[in-house]
């Protein structure tokens, strides 16, 4: 699970696009960021592992791929053989499907194998579209990424789901890293006896762990400082909506001690809806639109690790 161990080619990066709720625009944003990067000359592979609806191909205007990740799991076909042309130079697509990734059908070892092979793909950028939900498979894939990207809509259900998703991811990350340091069951143990330790939430769990042994505190501080979320706000309709991005950044820091990069937003735009209906890649057909510019802006911010420029603050 350690990113650094397996990954030798440091030139590339894995971006995972998740966020908890379905329908917030993750797939659209993944395909658009990929298209933008490919047209900039980067070598891209998109991996669609949206369990409920692997449909990334539709956003690129290609038909449902016949080869999918189930070939990898069941027949051992290498990932590079499953990568399909997308119609956009430099960019390939590996499609997931419902059967191969349905909740319990892949074993932990299979998952590790998939991650190892993803890390070995000879592409500069691997963009993984995670789909909704906070299932462990989704979260583990999120956690192997070099850049963990959360797409959010400015409405309460999406916000609630994202909190849930991020807290679960963090919980799992801490559990895994403490395990790798030899503290095998400590997180589970504390969480299970939370009444005894007066722990009501993740924040208190972290505090309690830190106070238990000083070196655990150091490990946690290190892990927390590495756990960075890149936040994209989609379907924005007002400047009030944009503030939600800054608010969530603030809450993650002040409540969980997590750093968030609010990289940008995408205003609600009928052209996107039309483009999806027409099954044509948006960045190609509406390349000069305001939305395309917004997509470019946050993609660049993710690339460079910078944030949205606050003009309204």
């Amino acid at each position: 699970m350690e990113k650094t161990g397996v990954r030798k080619n440091k030139e590339g990066e894995i971006w995972a696009i998740g966020g908890g709720k379905g329908g917030t625009g993750k797939t659209f944003i993944t395909s658009s960021m990929g298209t933008y990067l490919a047209r900039k000359g980067k070598r891209i592979v998109l991996i669609d592992i949206d369990i409920g609806g692997a449909n990334l191909h539709s956003f690129l205007g290609i038909s449902r791929p016949k080869k999918s990740l189930s070939f990898f799991f069941e027949k051992g076909v290498p990932l590079s053989k499953l990568a399909l042309k997308t119609g956009i130079g430099n960019m390939y697509l590996i499609s997931g499907d419902i059967h191969s990734l349905a909740s319990d059908s892949i074993k932990f070892t299979q998952k590790l194998k998939l991650f190892r092979h993803i890390l070995k793909l000879n592409k500069q950028y691997v963009l993984i579209d995670l789909g909704g939900g906070s299932h462990n498979n989704t979260i583990d894939t999120f956690l192997i990424a070099d850049k963990m990207i959360a797409v959010l809509e400015p409405e309460i259900i999406a916000i609630e789901n994202m909190y849930h998703f991020i807290k679960n991811s963090l919980f799992r990350k801490l559990k895994m890293s403490l395990r790798s340091y030899g503290f095998k069951e400590i997180v589970e143990h504390m969480w299970e006896s939370r009444e005894k330790y007066k722990i009501n939430n993740l924040n208190e769990l972290i505090e309690c762990l830190k106070n238990s042994f000083s070196y655990i505190g150091d490990i946690l501080d290190e892990e927390l400082s590495k756990f960075k979320i890149y936040l994209i706000l989609n379907k924005v309709r007002s400047s009030q909506d944009i503030i939600i991005g800054s608010s969530i950044k603030s809450i993650f820091m002040k409540y969980l001690g997590l750093e968030t990069q609010f990289v940008g937003y995408l205003e609600y735009d009928d052209a996107i809806w039309r483009s999806i209906r027409e099954r044509r890649p948006f960045m190609v057909n509406y390349g000069t639109s305001r939305s395309a510019k917004e997509i470019e802006t946050f993609t660049e911010n993710i690339l460079q690790g910078s944030e949205i420029k606050h003009s309204r603050n």
């Binding site: 809450i251 409540y255 603050n313």
Partner: peptide, 24 residues
């Protein structure tokens, strides 16, 4: 403006606070 924004954020219930209001 940063002060006013944060003061508003942490003193009132809102779409970003309500979902975690029980633990926060």
């Amino acid at each position: 403006s940063a002060y006013l924004r944060l003061k508003r954020l942490y003193s009132a219930e809102s779409v970003v606070i309500s979902p975690i209001a029980d633990e926060f």
